[in-house]
Design a protein around this nucleic acid. Structure first.
Length: 349
DNA sequence: TACGCGTGGGC
DNA sequence: TGCCCAAGCGT
């Protein structure tokens, strides 16, 4: 690729087409010396890992309303934060979010470090996120390489190596393209370009500021890139979940272990999720089968048979009782909320 | 290095 | 409708 001028073309495009997002400052504001809030940049970057802007936006608003500063978040109760994260997925992010906030509070005087190396030492902050915070929040010259940048660069250079093998090669090419001017705007410009123009399925090359620099566009095969290794098929697992309510109207929940799937979240007690699994109630009740929930996780499909019982009398101490005022279905991860919806319709219907 | 880890939207 | 995909990280 002939790259001279590509960064200038991209920055000019960004000046006119930057997306307005609640954690961002505009190119105009940045030019006038306004700096973004590193807390908001960090929070948005964690929330948007493997997550669309559309999905993350309302969570960002809610979190910053509840906890306007990193110290406020650090002081929050784990259970409340996990409940607010419920539905967004990848719950290790929320656990690491809290860990990170407390490291910032306790070891960094409540101030985010500026350098990529210091940032990457924080829980949940890896190569991408450290570069993003350093460049976007502190305007340091770092190269961000996320899925958008990988796609843009693989097309600019028609990289025939499939992902994830191609990652180091794409990182090297992206680094070579990064200008020393306006690093924060440039990072966001690359991601905006990938999100709005250089999209996975039907890139809109006719509107692309890098059209004249792009080998794939010249060859007319932009949508062929990036190449990807074939994925493994997802197996289907089965399980049973038990949505119970005590005679006093308390829901019978179970806090899941900190590690592993849905770690640290509330859920309904039940069987393991494996191959067809025998039904076995975790405690006594007048159980009735109310239906099936189908749900797909990252690496398997789940068919969950849901059982419901009201007027449960005794429950094991390992379970958590939540009265009407202390229970919100929205605090549950999605698969558990689906099970609740099914059982609730039956119990109330 | 490769795998485990969620969810919702688009086609 | 089933598959692909989205601002990755930790182990």
């Amino acid at each position: 690729m002939k790259q001279d001028g590509s960064s200038a073309a991209l920055l000019a495009w960004y000046d006119a087409h930057a997306r307005e997002l609640p954690w961002r400052i505009s190119p105009m504001e940045r030019r006038n010396g306004v700096a973004p809030d590193p807390y908001r940049v960090w929070l948005s970057e964690i929330m948007l890992q493997q997550t669309t802007v559309a999905a993350g936006k309302s969570y960002f608003e809610r979190f910053t309303d509840l906890w306007p500063t990193v110290t406020a978040l650090a002081d929050a109760e784990d259970e409340v934060v996990m409940g607010e994260w419920a539905g967004l997925g990848y719950y290790a992010r929320a656990r690491n979010l809290l860990k990170c906030a407390r490291v910032i509070r306790d070891e960094h005087q409540g101030i985010f470090p500026r350098t990529r190396v210091e940032l990457q030492a924080l829980p949940g902050v890896g190569p991408y996120t450290s570069a993003a915070i350093s460049s976007i929040a502190f305007d340091q010259s770092e190269t961000v390489v996320d899925g958008n940048v990988e796609r843009v660069v693989s097309r600019l250079f028609r990289v025939e190596t499939p992902l994830p093998t191609a990652k180091p090669e794409l990182t090297e090419l992206a680094t070579r393209l990064t200008p020393s001017e306006r690093p924060g705007d440039y990072a966001q410009a690359m991601m905006d370009l990938g999100a709005t123009i250089c999209t996975p399925k039907s890139p809109v090359c006719s509107l692309c500021p890098l059209q004249d620099f792009c080998e794939a566009h010249a060859a007319g095969d932009a949508s062929r890139f990036p190449l990807k290794l074939p994925k493994k098929p997802k197996p289907t697992r089965h399980g049973h979940a038990y949505v119970g309510r005590s005679a006093r109207g308390e829901w019978v929940l179970q806090k899941r272990p900190e590690k592993g799937l849905l770690g640290g979240m509330l859920g309904w007690p039940g069987t393991e999720w494996q191959d067809p699994h025998p039904k076995r109630a975790p405690y006594e009740g007048n159980w009735q089968e109310v239906g099936e929930v189908r749900h797909t996780f990252t690496h398997f499909h789940l068919i969950l048979t849901v059982h419901a019982a009201a007027d449960v009398e005794r429950t094991p101490d390992s379970l958590t009782l939540r009265g009407q005022n202390a229970f919100r279905a929205s605090d549950l991860p999605t698969v558990m909320r689906k099970a609740f919806d099914l059982a609730y319709a039956k119990l109330e219907g």
